[in-house]
Nucleic acid binder design. Structure first.
Ligand SMILES: NC(=O)c1ccc[n+]([C@@H]2O[C@H](COP(=O)([O-])OP(=O)(O)OC[C@H]3O[C@@H](n4cnc5c(N)ncnc54)[C@H](O)[C@@H]3O)[C@@H](O)[C@H]2O)c1
Ligand SMILES: NC(=O)c1ccc[n+]([C@@H]2O[C@H](COP(=O)([O-])OP(=O)(O)OC[C@H]3O[C@@H](n4cnc5c(N)ncnc54)[C@H](O)[C@@H]3O)[C@@H](O)[C@H]2O)c1
Lengths: 215, 215
DNA sequence: CCTGGTATGTGCAAGAATTCACAATCATTT
DNA sequence: AAATGATTGTGAATTCTTGCACATACCAGG
């Protein structure tokens, strides 16, 4: 990737991923051109932000014209390395876990679940609609080469999240996406993203009340 | 809420919600005291950050000692207004929607689903394990008082997310939590939080690759 | 009642991220 | 070929956020 060697804000990466969503739709509709202004409006951000975010990685637009949808999308896929397949494993095949494994959007974007683990004996051995068979957590292999997945997803109950993370790390996984309400600690050499929806609800509740309060 | 009238960073609210998770566990374990240092470690943040975040809302600790777990948690609940029940409605009762409606953690935290809507005739009329009956989207009422919910959750496919949001807004909803990959535009007078997991995966993929690349 | 040990609360400086504002650039029209 | 109009790319200004460092306050023990 041809990045300028200046520091890239963390939020820039997430926004660039965001930009790709409307672009995919425009590509389907065969819209050729898009301006930073229009793209920004669709993503709820400032147009200058769009241009600056992209400028960290190169010059993809044409002054006076805008961006070519197909080219920009392809550049973004290169930037995000989502132009290839990533193999995922999941720990905890409950409601949330099943929703993720069966989600076709993730697959379309190149995220493929290749292993599913659970500790509940009733679940082990079951075949999921996607074709995966649920395995005992203990069978997570010891090395990345053997286990064959690169990103671990955690959807166990909070009490088991750290244990699941430890197993993944022992198996050589270098990136974890954790949906449990327990905050997995970021170990050396492994990226962790914690996603907790109920925080989003708390956030909404707070802001709802403070708006009310001010009226 | 007794806030100092200085501006409160947006990130502060989300972190305060984060702090409450370990506190809940300490309360169960009957741990009485906690230091900003310990709490910070559990949440992957800086201790000064914890203290500053809390200081926007008051002085909850005791110098030389730390924070009383029970009191702090109760203060945080007051701050976040999660000391009361919030009524939610959901649009789109697919895999993801069901996982949310059946999630007991949300209920424990005071978030209660009181209505479920879907556009699929096969789903309408079905009774969910929680006791809710799935209603047609068209039956979302016109006013908040009538509809009886305050926060709308969207788990339809991306193509229907904006329509679902519009229905919620017509029904008087002032806050929306959207899980579809479509970015709902933030209308006047209504808060919108967009949550898109696949962005988190893109983020992990990017960082995984750039670490590799540098080695 | 004083002293030592500890952890909070916060002013201020440093650091990041966002937004502005405009020069640079290109297609189009006259 | 010059003028026009549009929209990018980016240095600089601005705004927001974080973290340091230390005065402040409290408890316990003598
Ligand atoms: N469902 C939601 O909407 C939602 C929302 C927010 C957060 N979460 C969090 O996501 C997690 C999963 O939610 P869910 O609704 O799927 O719960 P669930 O109870 O349906 O599923 C949890 C699954 O994890 C398995 N499990 C338990 N311990 C395990 C271990 N050590 N290793 C592997 N598997 C293990 C259980 O057998 C079960 O299958 C929970 O932590 C929950 O707090 C869920
Ligand atoms: N499942 C996941 O893990 C996951 C991950 C990331 C994003 N998402 C997003 O969450 C959304 C839901 O995912 P899912 O897995 O539950 O999909 P799903 O297909 O299982 O469920 C979608 C549901 O929405 C209903 N629906 C469609 N149009 C509607 C409308 N206008 N009003 C009300 N209901 C309508 C459908 O009948 C269906 O029941 C999707 O947008 C998906 O992209 C899901």
């Amino acid at each position: 990737m041809t990045t300028k060697d200046s520091k890239i804000p963390g939020a820039t990466i997430e926004r660039i991923a965001l930009y790709s969503r409307p672009l995919e739709k425009f590509l389907e509709q065969e819209t050729e051109l898009i301006s930073s202004e229009r793209l920004a409006a669709l993503c709820n951000v400032n147009p200058a932000q769009v241009r600056k975010d992209l400028s960290y990685f190169g010059e993809f637009g044409v002054r006076g014209i805008g961006y070519n949808v197909r080219d920009l999308l392809s550049e973004i896929r290169k930037i995000l390395v989502s132009d290839r397949e990533w193999k995922l494993a999941i720990a905890g095949v409950g409601n949330m876990g099943k929703a993720l494994v069966e989600n076709v959007n993730l697959l379309k974007r190149g995220y493929k679940f290749v292993a599913a683990f659970d500790s509940n004996p009733e679940r082990i051995g079951k075949r999921l609609p996607s074709g995966l068979t649920v395995q005992p957590l203990t069978s997570i292999g010891p090395s990345k080469e053997e286990s064959g997945f690169e990103i671990g997803v955690i959807t166990t109950g909070p009490a088991y999240a750290q244990a699941a993370a430890d197993s993944f790390i022992r198996a050589g996984v270098r990136a974890i996406l954790n949906f449990s309400a327990f905050q997995v600690r970021q170990p050396e050499g492994c990226l962790v993203e914690n996603v907790d929806f109920s925080i989003k609800l708390d956030d909404l509740a707070y802001h709802l009340s403070s708006i009310r309060g001010k009226k």
